[in-house]
């Protein structure tokens, strides 16, 4: 009886402690589950713009960069640039990236904005920090196993595991097995 009380107490307190983390992992889980349909970390806006082609035959990269920035009305400071070919240049400003064909006067202006909350959840869920977080996440995973197993035996009687609980449990076991049979 004392064991049961301890198990219930641990289940309850771990439940309180890790509730927020369960939500973080779940939100991130949904976000990265659809990685082929959307970007879970960033909002990337790409806008095509035309400008008067650069006619100077000398390829002074800084001059080309300044010309394009002026043409596109970008006031941002230039971090770096890359001459991709004799006609194309990539410009990396503080907040935007410009890929331009300066001979044709065509540019693709890319603005990247971080998704504030979801990116943080992904940061933790995908264990980007590594280090200490690896151990915390491992412990969290072990606690989830504990919560799952102890949760099975939380109730007694007709709503307990031996009652209708076992049928739900079997259903939950069959679900991944069916998916594996169908898709693996």
């Amino acid at each position: 009886m004392k064991v049961r009380k301890t198990v219930r107490g641990l289940h309850r307190d771990f439940g309180y402690f890790f509730a927020f983390l369960v939500i973080i992992y779940s939100v991130s889980g949904i976000a990265v589950n659809h990685v082929n349909d959307w970007n879970p970390n960033y909002i990337i806006e790409k806008v095509r713009k035309d400008f008067t082609p650069y006619t100077d035959s000398t390829l002074v990269q800084e001059e080309i960069a300044a010309y394009i920035a002026d043409q596109l009305g970008i006031k941002d400071s230039l971090n770096s640039l890359f001459l991709a070919s004799e006609d194309e240049i990539d410009l990396f400003f503080q907040k935007v990236t410009v890929t331009a064909n300066f001979r044709e006067g065509k540019a693709l202006v890319e603005t990247v904005t971080s998704r504030p909350v979801i990116r943080l959840t992904n940061f933790l869920h995908l264990n980007v920090p590594k280090k200490l977080w690896t151990w915390i996440a491992d412990f969290f995973a072990l606690v989830l196993i504990y919560l799952a197993i102890s949760g099975l035996f939380m109730l007694k009687g007709k709503n307990g595991f031996k009652g209708r609980g076992k049928w739900f449990f079997i259903g939950g076991v069959l679900l991944p097995i069916i998916i594996i049979i169908l898709y693996y």
Partner: peptide, 29 residues
């Protein structure tokens, strides 16, 4: 990564999840 000569670049591929490069890396050394 851009090369040291004009027009040159090389792709650096990492195992998914082992390293996650942020978009903010663009334009940085």
């Amino acid at each position: 990564l851009s090369g040291d000569q004009p027009y040159e670049k090389i792709k650096v591929k990492v195992n998914d999840g082992e390293i996650v490069f942020p978009m903010e890396a663009k334009g940085k050394k």
